[in-house]
Amino acid sequence: MEITKIIFWFLTALALVAAIGVISSKNPIYSVLWLIVVFFAISGHYVLMNAQFLAIVNIIVYAGAIMVLFLFVVMLMNLNADAEPIKNVYMKMAGVISGLTLMIVFVAALSASEQHSTIIRPGTSVGLIENLGRALFNKYVVPFEISSVLFLSAMVGAVVIGKKDPIKRINE
């Protein structure tokens, strides 16, 4: 086996194990940590596919910012394993079964697709930041600007929701 293949299978296994860890951990903190592991595994895949820019952005955005926020919130709330009410076992079973069924259906369906054995080609300059940046600021300038609206709205929203009402405080 080549080294890339070994890395691939290692990362795959890591991602899957960690993903299962996310959903099966009792304690939200562990879920968060497992999820970070998943993100690292996925970033590893990106690197394997030579999408370095996205790999590093994945780390910065997801692992570095998003998950820190998650961790922050979970820690602030000080949620313990027993904070979550026990969901009906049958409901859980139903959820698991439906998810697995969905997966089996998709896998079965997509195994039949004609592209499924195409071999991907990692070694190019597509994933380099220079090329992506050029495309982003030329062709994709409209979505880029529009995403700023998205951010503004998220920002305003978070402030609106997060800020305590001064009047209310007086009443209290």
Partner: peptide, 11 residues
Amino acid sequence: LYIFGVVSLGV
């Protein structure tokens, strides 16, 4: 970017 990534993990 790498430095940023690593720094953001430092926390």
